[in-house]
Design a protein around this nucleic acid. Structure first.
Lengths: 216, 216
DNA sequence: TAAAAAATTTAGACTTGTCTAAAAAATATT
DNA sequence: AATATTTTTTAGACAAGTCTAAATTTTTTA
């Protein structure tokens, strides 16, 4: 098995790879709150284990073996988040840190039974897809509310910013996963938007609209 | 917080302290499958942190602060074991290793909510008491079946040997927690015993009788 | 395109937790 | 009580993962 540090590197490489083909040393150092030198050391180790493609100064990407491990960790993280919210009544902004520890529990049998216990959920409390036991998941087509035209409707289905502050703000505005909204008005001056959600009109900034994702 | 290694030492010292006032370096080395030299190193560290009473060559015991931490880890271990058996349908002989990892999840709020979710269980799947959030628990008066007189009755309430082999054997003989039994006969020659459990007569060796605990 | 800036790697060191071998202390034995 | 045995500690070393400072490579910019 891999160490805790190795698992965290693989997971971070996976997440950063979603935005770009290859991931840089500094990106990893920033995300993991560590030094670039430490990242280089670990990249050599992961390359030796054939979990990443790495050439000096060239950035890294996951090999199929590395991606498989990363997806398994993400599966565990998201299933535990689902458990914490659905069974233990935590709020969606409270679960990340706990899941960050729980994702390293090693038993595969345990996580498969947890999956079954909860009825094989497809999405975690933030709308992120939960890979199945084979690592497969479907990304639903999402776009930021900021890209939606006036009068268009959609279902809130994800967030780009997972910070507690943002999640708490959304909760307070009742902009939670599954809610149907319509873009009522766009303020040209600052690109802020007024959303219609049931009988409520909610005014959100451009920044919020950028970080809130809907399925149309 | 304490490291994983520190937590495991505290837990081991607690368990060994149940049989004797003070715990020796070699006892710890054996239980933790490590060298006596490593144990000495760690004891110095724990003594610096005021979690144990330690004087060279004199053995160790937990301070109140150390005991509090040990009991919290044991609480987490036993609650997770209960969860695994009651909610995820694992057998009582399968859960120890998993709980061994899960007991190090740090959130106290999480464990308190897990406790509530399961209805505040008092005993884990092996009959061991689960400390409450303040570290309190009641030990019920148990004695090994080997100490029970002929014709006496009792409820199976615990085990002294937690090994999967022993637990599987008991399960196969239907000698599980909560079952009412009566000592039907004691074979003088080898101190083996015949138990009456409902309509079944079960013949157990002296060794098994020694490791099976009942409340009378 | 050559110098400057930024990104990355190397070198050397530190901490944690472990090890083996040797020394010291405690305990048992004759 | 003196010696032998066992237990425990000390000494010195190692691997993992991290650090800072310096060197190297790549990228940017003038």
């Amino acid at each position: 098995m891999n160490t805790l540090a190795e698992e965290n590197y693989l997971k971070s490489i996976y997440h950063l790879s979603l935005n770009a083909e290859s991931v840089s040393t500094n990106q990893l150092a920033a995300l993991l709150s560590t030094s670039a030198a430490s990242v280089t050391d670990m990249l050599k180790k992961l390359a030796d284990k054939q979990l990443i493609n790495y050439a000096r100064y060239q950035g890294v990407s996951l090999t199929p073996a590395g991606e498989k491990i990363a997806l398994h960790i993400i599966r565990k993280h998201r299933l535990w988040e689902f458990f914490l919210v659905e069974k233990l009544d935590f709020k969606w902004d409270e679960v990340h840190e706990m899941a960050e520890e729980m994702e390293h529990i090693s038993s595969t049998e345990l996580i498969d039974r947890l999956d079954k216990f909860m009825g094989y959920p497809k999405y975690d409390p933030h709308g992120d897809p939960i890979p199945d036991s084979k690592g497969n998941f479907k990304v639903h087509e999402l776009k930021p509310v900021s890209m939606v035209a006036v009068n268009e409707c959609g279902i809130i289905s994800g967030v780009r910013d997972h910070s507690p502050a943002f999640l708490q703000y959304l909760e307070k505005q009742q902009l939670t996963i599954g809610k149907k909204i319509q873009v009522a008005e766009i303020i040209e001056y600052d690109h802020s938007m007024i959303l219609q959600a049931g009988n409520n009109r909610i005014h959100i900034s451009r920044e919020v609209a950028n970080n809130l994702l809907i399925a149309v």
